[in-house]
Computed example of a mutant assay.
Amino acid sequence: MVDGILIGLGVLCVAYFIVIVVYAGIGTSFAFIWLFFAALLLFLVYGRWYYSRNMDRIPRWVPVSVVTTCVAGVVALAVLCVLVFLGAASSDKKNLDYVIVLGARVKEHTVSNSLKKRLDKAIEYAEENPDTILVLSGGRGPGEDVSEAEVMRQYLEYNGVRPEQLLIEDRSVSTVENIAYSKVVIEEHRNRDKKELVPLTRRTTSVPYAIAPDKPLEIGVLTSNFHIYRARLTAEKWGIENVYGISADSDPVLFIHLCVRECASIVKDRLMGNM
């Protein structure tokens, strides 16, 4: 029974790998993880068979260690996937001060399917919240002739978003840099606005008055649904206190693969102290 389940899961992993390759191409990032999962499942089947015939020669701690490690890995992956799913299900908060729109790969001045979904969501949000400033974040990566932020700006302006509603951050090449550099752009924009304010004339009345504190800054991070959880934690790590996720749709065929890949990125960023 157990062997049948493991073999069935292994077959599903191989089948999903084939779907990914046919649908998105052999160069799809992290696609070979599914072949690794399939090989691991088949190894467990072989290990059970081998242990059942050599129980007298193999110490008990060996199978216990293998099973414990596998169970711990499955539990950790499940917990991370739940967190990713919860991030993907987050609802949009209205009237934010700024929304950081995370870029994605562009090629020959055209947006990828993933980036198009993010930008279409940004257009929708900008129309519903005209006072929100969008920070377009994305530098020029390998093989790109122009920065992602510039392509994003052209797409948004072509689709009716006002230029004065857009800020550009075109140095970043990773999620961490997206957040860090966008925070700098926001701070520079706020400081510039403060300098442009006309100072109040000196009061002649003796009536006391109180100065209200500034409203807490509220910032959104707009990205693909599977990416929301990591983007929010990264923003909090970089000192953005009131941060909200704005979820754009992702490819339904690749969604499971993207979530698994995102789990690996979460672990990496956590170990590196980025979130």
Rank of each mutant, 00 (worst) to 15 (best):
D3P: 11
L9V: 10
A15K: 02
I18G: 02
I20F: 03
I20D: 01
Y23E: 02
F30E: 06
A31E: 07
I33N: 08
W34I: 03
W34L: 04
W34V: 04
A38Q: 09
A39K: 03
L40V: 07
L41P: 03
F43P: 02
R48K: 13
R48L: 13
Y51M: 01
N54H: 12
R60D: 08
R60E: 10
W61Q: 05
T68I: 03
C70W: 08
G73H: 12
V74K: 01
L80E: 03
V84W: 02
L86P: 01
L86C: 08
G87A: 05
S90W: 00
K93Q: 11
K94Q: 14
K94V: 04
N95M: 11
L96K: 02
G103I: 02
G103K: 08
H109S: 14
T110E: 11
T110N: 10
K117D: 07
K121F: 02
K121R: 08
E124I: 00
E128K: 14
P130W: 00
G143V: 07
D145G: 12
D145A: 11
V146K: 13
V146I: 14
A149R: 06
V161F: 05
P163C: 07
E164C: 03
L166T: 02
D170P: 04
V173G: 10
V173P: 06
S174Y: 05
V176A: 10
V176H: 11
I179C: 04
I179N: 01
A180V: 15
A180L: 11
Y181L: 05
Y181N: 13
Y181A: 03
V185Q: 07
I186Y: 06
E187V: 10
K195Q: 14
E196T: 13
L197Q: 15
P199S: 12
T205Y: 13
A210H: 15
P216R: 13
G220N: 03
E241M: 12
N242W: 06
S247A: 11
D249H: 06
S250I: 00
D251W: 01
P252R: 08
V253A: 11
L254Q: 08
L254R: 07
L258C: 04
L258P: 00
C259S: 09
V260L: 15
E262Q: 05
A264F: 15
V267S: 09
K268H: 13
K268D: 09
K268W: 11
D269F: 09
M275E: 07
